[in-house]
Structures are given as C-alpha cells and as structure tokens.
Design a binder for these strands. Structure first.
Lengths: 212, 212
DNA sequence: AGACACATCTAGACAGTGTCAAGTTACGCG
DNA sequence: CGCGTAACTTGACACTGTCTAGATGTGTCT
C-alpha cells in the first residue's frame, strides 16, 4: 500500500491536522449561514460541521468576526461573478451592460440572502479588513465604471454623475433587499413569473435612475 | 397626604411590582438597541436597564422575539410619524407629498439605524404578529396611496402603477439603507452639507423612479 | 536519519446568553 | 379581611464565544 501520502489526501478524515482547514471552515460557515441565517449563526456549529473542535477556527480567523469578514469578502467576489455572468449574456452596448450588473446584483441577493445580509446589513464584518475592502471596492468599481460609460462623465469629478451612481446603486440595492426579504413577492409574485418576464420588470425599474 | 395612590406613582422605584413594566422594557430595549446595535442585543441587559430581573421580560413579551416584534411595530409607527412631519412641512401638491414621505423615510433611517435594521433586515421580528403587520401595512399604505395620486392609477389593479410603487419603494429604501451603513457618506459627504443641499440631492434622486 | 522548532488542533474552563420551572410578593376583587 | 392570581424573582439548564494549557503532527536543519 502506497497509502497515506503526506499532502492533501482524503480531506475529511480524522487526522489531527486537517491540512486545509481554512477553506473548509469557510465552506462550512457558508452552509451554516445559508441554512440558519446570519442571526443564529454559531461558530461552534461551523466547527462541528467541519469536523474539528470548537477552538479550531480561532487559529485561522482569530475570532467569529474574522471568519465572517473573510466570508463576506468571498461574497463580494461571488457578487462580481454573478454580475459578469449577466454581462456575458447581455448585449454589448453600454446601457445593456449597466443593466446587466444590476440584474446580477439581484440574482446574487436572491441566491444568497444570508450572505447578502452579512455583506450589507451586518456590523460583524470588519470593513477595514484588507480583503474585505478590496473585494467590496472591486464590486463598487464595476458600477462606477459602467455609469461613467453611460453618462460620459467621471463620477469622482462630476457631482451629477455621482448622483447617477448613487441613484443606480440605491435602486438596485433596495430592489434586491426588498425582494429577498419577501416584501416584493407579496406585491408582484415575481417567483411565479417566467424569468424573461421577471427580467423585463426589473429592467424597466433599473433603467429609471439613469433615464433623464 | 393623599400619597401612595395605587396607580402609577414614581415608576422607577424598587417595588416588587413595577406597575408599568411593558412600556418600560420597550423603552429600555430601544435604548439598548441604539447603543449596542441589533447584533449584540441582549435581553438580560434590557432587563437590567429597566431594573428588573432577567426573567421579567418573558412575562410581558413571551421571549426575545416577542419583545423585538413589539419594538419593530413601534418603529413603523415612528416611521410614519417622521413621514408625516415631512409632509406637513412640504408643499401640498401630489409630487411634493410623495417626495416628502421619501425624505421622512430617510430621516427615520438615519435617526434610528438599529431600529431600521431590526424592522427591515432582521428575521427576529415575527411578521405575522398582529401589531407588526398592522403598523408595517399602514406605512406601506401611505406609499401606495401617494403613488396612486401621482400616477392616477390603482397599483392593485394596474401593473404599471405597481411597478411605480415598487420602484419608488426600492429607491428610497436602498437610499436609506446605503446611507445608514455609511456607504454613501464616503461618496458624497452628505453629513457635511447643509440640510437644504442634502435634501436637494435626495429629492433629485427620489424623483427618478416616477419621472417618465 | 534524528531532533528540534513551530504551526495546528484538542480539551477544559469561564462569563455571558435565552428559556424554563418553581417559588415569592403584592395587587385587586369578592 | 382573605384569597385568587398576575407580576416578578431566583436558580437551573444548555448553549454561545473566547481564553488557556496541553497534545500532536509537519517541516527543516544539521
């Protein structure tokens, strides 16, 4: 038997040294978050799910705040991926691309409600954390860039363009937040509609902040 | 001396029966919420602040969820009051009145960030609770009514009008949520501006969802 | 190859949390 | 005046996050 190769064999075994605990904890944390929500999130439950002792996470993330901060940073990367998926499927013109990142924003929120709440409505993540700040700024940068292309002015030097950025962000963020809290479903029953009809409604709304 | 009238004397004494614990707990809970935020909210800390034992709240609100549900319901009443204050100060035309409730919405969010989060971004309140549902529907009803006046169609029978409602709500909600999480401050420095300039920016943005 | 430094993980303890059950106090009604 | 019952206290329980000390591998250097 050539067995027991030192590096990364079957990970979930009961080896004393897990070998890849950091990522495994993040995966477990995301699952816990999806199942139980942000509010009843438990660090010990995450450790149990990953098959390690309750003290193990501390060594990789410091404390619960650290783990949730890392998870939120991953969330922003995931958000960007959802936006890029919509961009790839959209027409190449500037407006369609801007709307696409809005639709991706909503897609992400619906698909990951607890993660969305962690990223935008929680005090637990440390916003001064490097990875968190970098990922969240990258997501915001996409918006700024596409609004600039749309209105033809740099938001950082043109107050009107910055209002367009803020209006666009507020609209898509409010839309996503109200949808994933179930407050829109009661009014429009979006989940009952075929995707193209849902998209048409969202596009109509997402166009409003920038149509002068 | 006519003293020691049975009902409601000096409330905060160390009488075994507090006499008015329900409201006192709500007041303490709101203060705790404002100071510590939704996430590190502690029922025992609320009881301590109100000067009663840790088990006392259960008798009035059942459990923590019950207390927070009642508090959220009060929050909606407070939201409506903030909107009505803006309405009273605004011009009587339909559009000004609609914008006024938007400004009141933002006012409320900025003044009560933790309560706002409890009302809109938390799973803790029981939305099927009678008082909660009534108060939140009253707040929403204001919006529907004013959008209907603005666009001249009943949102419950006209899909376009309902899109106007959703767009208006999403815009003001997203705006408030992003402002109170500090994400707009970095971009526009609203807190540095005089109120009329801030209002002008917000009005510009709040008009967009309904200007065809 | 052997041994040592170090990162990794476990195990126990601590204060704090929400909730439950049982006991104590006092209000109000007869 | 006495008694039922609502209001409140107290103690216990399981659970939480964090800290500490100890156990266990991993990798490296000679």
């Amino acid at each position: 038997m050539t067995a027991s190769s030192p590096s990364a064999s079957h990970a979930a075994s009961k080896r004393y040294h897990h070998g890849d605990l950091g990522p495994a904890l993040l995966k477990a944390a995301e699952e816990e978050l999806a199942e139980n929500g942000t509010e009843s999130f438990s660090l010990r439950a995450v450790a149990k799910r990953a098959g390690v002792s309750h003290g193990a996470p501390a060594h990789h993330f410091g404390d619960a705040k650290g783990l949730l901060t890392a998870l939120a940073a991953i969330g922003y990367d995931r958000l960007i991926a959802a936006q890029e998926a919509r961009q790839a499927a959209a027409a190449p013109d500037k407006t369609s691309q801007l709307i696409a990142i809005g639709l991706g924003y909503v897609d992400f929120g619906i698909a990951n409600p607890a993660l969305f709440r962690l990223m935008f409505s929680s005090e637990k993540p440390d916003r001064s954390d490097e990875a968190f700040a970098a990922s969240s700024l990258a997501a915001f940068g996409k918006l700024v860039e596409l609004v600039q292309a749309e209105v033809g002015a740099d938001p950082y030097s043109d107050a009107e363009a910055m209002k367009d950025v803020v209006a666009s962000w507020a609209m898509v963020h409010g839309l996503a937040d109200l949808i994933l809290s179930g407050r829109i479903e009661r009014l429009m029953g979006l989940s009952q509609l075929p995707q193209d009809e849902t998209d048409a409604i969202l596009i109509d709304i997402l166009l409003r902040p920038i149509s002068r």
